[in-house]
Design a binder for these strands. Sequence first.
DNA 1: AAGGGAGCCAACCGCGAGAAA
DNA 2: ATTTCTCGCGGTTGGCTCCCT
Length: 317
Amino acid sequence: MGRQPCCDKVGLKKGPWTAEEDKKLINFILTNGQCCWRAVPKLAGLLRCGKSCRLRWTNYLRPDLKRGLLSEYEEKMVIDLHAQLGNRWSKIASHLPGRTDNEIKNHWNTHIKKKLKKLGIDPVTHKPLSNNTTHQNQIKPEQPPLQEQEQDHHEPEIKEAEKPEAEDQFMTPLFESMDTIMMNGFCTDEVPILEPDEILAPCAGDASTSSIATTTSSSSSSSSSSSSDSYSNNPSSKFLEDLLLSDSEWSNDNNNNNYSSMALWDDDDFISSLDMLLNDDYYDSDRKQQQQPFDASLNQYPRMIMDSSESWAYGLF
DNA sequence: AAGGGAGCCAACCGCGAGAAA
DNA sequence: ATTTCTCGCGGTTGGCTCCCT
């Protein structure tokens, strides 16, 4: 009796994904789309359970993911949404395009929680810690988050189009005070805020790349150098680079290429994907280490996967 | 230079919800 | 109505990297 395990664990691989596994998974999903995760490992030739495949895809390989630190705006969003929704990370993530619940959860636990405590704000209730305590880590009776009391009646409805420009409208009174604190407090200190024109893609003097980078600024502070170089050490980032650089057809094509050819892909998704690649640390460290000019072929990757129905994408693999 | 602690994040685990049989 | 199966969520852990001593 009891629940059947999601997969037969015997002989299944666990732990970090290798480049080869990533490749297989991407290839499979490009070909077949996302369906029936249980069957994916078998069909894709992976010694993983379906759950692991799904997580790897949604948290890491999905092409529409942003990477790098959350921007100031995103962080504010997270705080405010958390005040309303509590630890419903997936709901919070659904309001932050390109961010995963796992990423937000991690960011909350490692950064925001700490910052709020530092500011004397209870990260659970989002209310000031009581004054009679000088110790910020004072243990308080666990209170349900605001959402427990209110949220069921009015879950925040945030329209995509409103987000970038209308952040002020989004603020709740709590958020407004938080915003003041944050602007005067930790955010500007600890999360470097870059003006769009300060954001330079780490490439070798290609003006067009920085111009593209400036077209989207919503998450541009993610270019902060403070993040670790774990991405560069991650096998999958290596894989992506290898994968793309090794593809002669695309590489050749893009060697001469500037972004003018990419005007073919003038939709927002592509631009945001470019933003992701140009601004985050995903490839940054490797490029720094190798002192390689930024290869425009890298930018093909997100688009390729997003257009999973397009046959040209398959040629890559 | 080496060791140890802290920070960070990808990945795992267990559970609940909903769909399908 | 009940059982079984799949997916998704949230909490937790393991291991890598960085920093301090």
